[in-house]
């Protein structure tokens, strides 16, 4: 597949994530949209990795060029899992204090 198709798909998914962050007020939905953006970036990294590998494999068939991109995706998933556990704990704590997940109530740090 031409790499541009993948770029357009990932840009669309990323923009949908941005629109979600800007338009929704539920903190959990905002968080889910951040996950959507992370996944769009992951898909683009894998597509670029395969593009790079395809170009290098015409020279040397046994090359492992492009494997770094897929390992980066793996590490992004690791960081995302850690981020979600802490983020959801913060949202639960906030819900316990103000009984809402509306981000408009979060415009002050104190009180």
């Amino acid at each position: 597949m031409p790499i541009q198709y993948y770029i357009f798909l990932c840009l669309t998914l990323f923009s949908i994530g941005i629109i979600g962050v800007l338009t929704r007020r539920n903190a959990i939905i905002v968080f889910m949209c951040v996950e959507l953006m992370l996944n769009a970036v992951n898909l683009l990294l894998v597509a670029f990795s395969k593009m790079h590998h395809g170009a290098a494999a015409t020279v040397d068939a046994a090359t492992t060029a492009g494997i770094d991109g897929q390992l980066f995706v793996f590490f992004i998933m690791v960081v995302a899992a850690a981020e979600v556990s802490v983020g959801l704990a913060i949202i639960v704590m906030m819900f316990r204090n103000i009984h809402s997940v509306d981000i408009n109530f979060l415009n002050r740090l104190k009180n």
Binding site: M1, I3, Y6, A47, K50, T64, D68, Q70
Partner: peptide, 24 residues
């Protein structure tokens, strides 16, 4: 930079667990 480039689909073995595990 992006003109005429394509991502391999269905071929290439860098995504297999053996190669990824070796690099990891």
């Amino acid at each position: 930079d992006m003109q005429g480039k394509a991502a391999q689909t269905g071929v290439g073995d860098i995504g297999l667990i053996k190669n990824l595990g070796k690099a990891l």
